[in-house]
Computed example of a mutant assay.
Amino acid sequence: MRKGDTILFEAPPSAVAYAAVGGKKEAEGPLADAFDMLIADTLCGEKTWEKAESDFARYCLEAALKKGRLQADALDAVFAGDLQCQCTASAYTMRGFDTPYLGLYGACSTMAEGFGLAACMVAGGHMQYAAAMSSSHFCAAERQFRTPLDYGGKRTPTAQWTVTGAGAAILAPAGGPPYVRAVTFGRVRDYNVTDINNMGAAMAPAACETILRYFADTGEKPEHFDAIFTGDLGFVGRTLLLQLLKEEGLPLENHQDCGLLVYDRDAQNVQAGGSGAGCSATVLCCHVLPALREGRMKRVLFLSTGALMSQTTFLQGESIPGVAHLIELSSELPEETEKGGGVR
């Protein structure tokens, strides 16, 4: 069933397995103990950062399959993407899996985009098992979008630290909680932010609009949820998002940002927080989904937010468009959830 931009699943699919892999910086953060694997060598023994990112993604998908007691040939498709040009980290990862691959580029919004598409395919009966995966690597991203690490440039206070890691989740028609109850795919919005070191400001307006559209479509209220997670707005973007929502008459008291959960800004030198396609992917798979499965949270909204520029458009002086995709997740099926005036 569809209401506005929101797809509501009458038979919500399940996230039957998930895994998160992180690097050295992530091992020093607050969620370290929740990761399935932490790799101190961010080169993974490879000669390039780009090859290392593919290793992170491969380890992650292998871990998710192992946890789900599945072989790769059980997957009907893998929806995956990353920040490298032409999504090469994901494509090179999938060389090792004899599985249909659908490459996605939503920048840092890729995990929610892939997760939502996989949920639609599974709920529609077109696939039995579908995986969503996203990754990023700090060194590869800095070299591609900003300046090589050898340059030694000073980072601005609004800059964010790209997560070195990957998250993967496998969806199926049934399998218990967490359940995917709804998806709202976002629209591209551009508020003329041109500072490549301020991704939070570029993405916050898109996150605001997607959240507003979801609540308008469904009639839900923020207080129905244990938490509303955004992908990687960081400190600057989160502050702006809350301000924008308040101006629209929707103050959020239960908002959390993955970029502020994966790192400790006071103890780690990450400026405004975490970012990258692996940011929301790892937090989703090591923190949000386990909390729902274990019943520590009942209902959440999860958004991945993406800045859709390239290194070429930035050098051409273009502004930075943003997009945000939303997933409604629950530890209960719809008929089990009581909500004020009844049940959706």
Rank of each mutant, 00 (worst) to 15 (best):
S331D: 04
L104A: 02
Y214M: 06
A307V: 14
S331R: 05
A267E: 02
G103H: 10
N254Y: 08
G200E: 07
L65K: 12
A206F: 11
G276T: 12
A174G: 02
E62A: 13
R189L: 15
A204Q: 03
S319Y: 10
A77N: 06
G176C: 11
M199H: 04
Q144Y: 15
A168T: 15
A159K: 09
E220A: 12
A63M: 14
D98Y: 15
G96V: 12
Q71N: 12
G259S: 01
P148C: 07
T42S: 13
F115M: 11
A34W: 02
V122N: 10
F56W: 04
Y105D: 15
Q243A: 15
W49T: 06
S330V: 04
I7A: 09
P157C: 07
T42W: 00
A123M: 09
E62F: 06
Q84G: 13
G4M: 03
I228V: 13
A166H: 10
L38F: 03
A307P: 13
C208M: 07
L329Q: 10
A52N: 09
E50Q: 13
H325R: 01
A168D: 06
C60L: 05
L31K: 03
G234S: 10
M111W: 14
M127A: 14
Q128W: 11
G23S: 11
I170R: 09
C139A: 15
Q243M: 06
L242I: 09
T158M: 06
I320H: 00
A272W: 08
Q316T: 11
N269M: 10
I7Q: 01
D41R: 13
L61Q: 03
D36M: 07
N192F: 00
L315G: 12
G116C: 11
R143I: 13
G23R: 00
L315F: 14
D33K: 12
S14Q: 06
A216V: 03
N254L: 04
L326F: 05
D41P: 05
A107I: 04
A130W: 10
V78L: 07
Q311N: 14
G219R: 05
L289Q: 01
W161M: 07
Y92T: 15
R296K: 12
M121G: 06
G340C: 11
D232I: 03
A140W: 00
H137I: 04
G45D: 02
D195A: 10
C85I: 12
P148Y: 05
G152Q: 00
H325P: 02
M127P: 05
G45Q: 00
A15H: 05
P12R: 00
L83D: 14
L117H: 11
E142Q: 13
L333P: 03
C285F: 04
T110C: 04
A15Q: 00
F185R: 09
E46P: 01
L241R: 11
Q86I: 01
